[in-house]
Amino acid sequence: MYAQGLIGKPGGSVSDETEEFLAAFQARIDAEEKIEPKDAMPAAYRRTLVRQIGQHAHSEIVGMLPEGNWITRAPSLKRKAALLAKVQDEGGHGLYLYAAAETLGVSREEMTEELLDGRAKYSSIFNYPTLSWADIGIIGWLVDGAAIMNQIPLCRCSFGPYARAMIRVCKEESFHQRQGYEIVMTLARGSEAQREMVQDALNRWWWPSLMMFGPHDADSTHSDQSMKWKIKRFTNDDLRQKFIDATVPQAEFLGLSVPDPDLRWNPDKNGGKGGYDHGAIDWDEFWRVVKGHGPMARDRIKARRKAWEDGAWVRDAARAHAKKRAARKAVLAAE
């Protein structure tokens, strides 16, 4: 008997991971069993999940900023309420995701510090600015749309807490996507100025949305192992293609043009079902933004740091008050 429960815990050495252990773990994955927090797991599996769930949570939190930028300028009371509720949902997603990551032995505070000092990444889509109201519609439609493509398969992820969190997240995201499309539709059917506003927003967000699926499969470093562990179920390129095929007809329906001169219907694609060929993605831009040089990267982190630092005295006060209360209770109990 050996303490398998310790294997893969932070600090657990890799040499504990015998061939038999790894094979048994893989067999559970292959049998579609869910891995739960107290189960033994390889250190690399735990690390991958902490990284991925943490990044996902950070993306939700940083993602509150570009859309939050329009809450105070939403054009009607109905839109204002819907946008507030949407941004609040994103904060909620951040909260469940941090909780899911905490089951793997990392605290929300540690993860927050990693975000604020630049060690942890978040989705680079949020490093683009929201320049008009139409961006709010386009983000709902394209960015949430791309997120859903990525996240629906995560509802079947091998790690139980992540898979379960994603079920609720996906339900809310698909509501957001419909809301976004409805904003886009209203603008597309509105005045000439509104149509120009929404076309401009589509022009700016189309390529960054395609980049959300990550590098081409050939250049993706984490893909193979994640597929094997069933953390990931489809490749970046497969998901990107699915997104394009679903989205182009939606743009056509609204009379908007997708800013890709090489976009063509190809009846032979997708095993004869047909699909769109698309133009080359600007990978230089992708890597520039991923490496932290996106137009809003500094501002986003600065805003998060400011909120965290400005709030330090509030968190300190809450802790101090809780201590005082506990001490008073103890005195009362002793009397």
Partner: peptide, 16 residues
């Protein structure tokens, strides 16, 4: 106006 800038995530949810 607080949304996204609150002292803690719980308040980022409570204020909106």
């Amino acid at each position: 106006e607080w949304c996204g800038h609150a002292p803690m995530l719980e308040e980022d949810l409570a204020l909106p």
